[in-house]
């Protein structure tokens, strides 16, 4: 297992009022994302525990792109990863934001 932590500044606060949401499952090639509205509006943090060791740079790139695209200000993401591919990670992060903003099922 490897622990990775990322801190970002976001352009704007994420919409909606939900306090937390969870998507995904911890399985081979999959991950769960727990998102909580617990930070100052301009901050965003991600704590990752991953079974795939040595992919810090890939995570960093995926997260830069995600923060740029969704501006998840005020949100803390806690991730348990079973070795998901970058596109699956991006999908789950986007789903998590949609859910906490109240637009997802």
């Amino acid at each position: 297992m490897e622990d990775l932590n990322f801190q970002h500044r976001a352009r704007a606060r994420a919409g909606g009022t939900r306090q937390s949401a969870i998507v995904g499952v911890v399985a081979s090639g999959n991950l769960e994302v727990l998102v909580e509205r617990s930070l100052p509006d301009a901050d965003c943090a991600l704590e990752i525990k991953t079974a795939a060791v040595g992919f810090g740079e890939v995570w960093s790139a995926v997260i830069d792109d995600f923060v740029e695209r969704y501006s998840p200000g005020g949100l803390k993401f806690s991730i348990n990863d079973g070795g998901a591919r970058p596109d699956t990670v991006s999908l789950r992060l986007a789903q998590a934001v949609r859910l906490i903003e109240g637009n997802g099922q």
Partner: peptide, 22 residues
């Protein structure tokens, strides 16, 4: 005791395996 409580298994880390929050 939802996932935000993070009551994970105390044993999976012995095997270097990922936990799930619930």
């Amino acid at each position: 005791i939802g996932p935000e409580q993070r009551e994970v298994s105390p044993h999976l880390r012995i095997f270097d395996l990922p936990e799930q929050f619930d």
